[in-house]
Design a protein around this nucleic acid. Structure first.
Lengths: 112, 112
DNA sequence: ATATTCAATAGATGATTATCTATGTGGGTG
DNA sequence: CACCCACATAGATAATCATCTATTGAATAT
């Protein structure tokens, strides 16, 4: 649907979602999401599935948590990561709505 | 679902989809998709909605067409762009499947 | 044919990204 | 207390990306 109609007041809808989409737009982060789809994992477990180093994973997880796709529980030494399915679904719903040729503007639709 | 299980033979599933996701991972390209959701537009019409220059739009459209999200009909001087809804839906379905905690591997599921 | 119009290409630049090595921090354990 | 262990941070680098100006190419109109 046309979201941009309605002026710049809502321009950051594009920005916000672009940030999240960018966060998952490389193969490694897609794989992280894929692994987490089966349940919580700590960083060390995640790292076993990749060829990159621990700081690189740390960086990826920071990006994924900052955009809200992944959450973390810190218990003692371990970080337990898991998908934030609500936010992930919001992203998917954004993409679905974006393509739908609805009439009207985002202002008039119940949006997120 | 865990897609990576099954070995490197399918590793490019991440790569292919990451490429498409990256293609739409900036605000301008999301807005282009949004505009095209209401129907075909030629490049000049699209350009009116943005502050960047014609070569920049040309570059964006190249990226969007190369990844299959947008198609183009060239008639005379004009390029008429429109969403490739089938490919767009494939992308959305990929994201949906990625999150679902199905058992099994991509090899055993009817995939694209 | 010459000018006009729409789009693509070339080449440059600044910003962002993915990755590394090296080091720091802070919670457990012996 | 001294040492591991899991993770974060700092700083560097090479690659990619979004954007620009300038130019070229190609189809149409006069």
């Amino acid at each position: 649907m046309i979201i941009y109609v309605g002026g710049d007041c809502l321009g950051n809808i594009y920005d916000d979602n672009a940030k999240t989409i960018k966060a998952i737009s490389d193969p490694s982060k897609l794989k992280i999401v894929d692994i987490l789809s089966c349940g919580e994992k700590c960083a060390s477990d995640l790292l076993e599935h990749f060829n990159f180093t621990q700081p690189t994973l740390s960086h990826h997880m920071k990006v994924l948590t900052e955009c809200g796709v992944v959450d973390v529980k810190k218990t003692g030494l371990w970080n337990h990561y898991f998908l934030n399915k609500e936010n992930y679904n919001k992203l998917v719903m954004f993409l679905v709505k974006l393509m739908k040729n609805n009439e009207g503007c985002i202002c008039e639709v119940n949006w997120r």
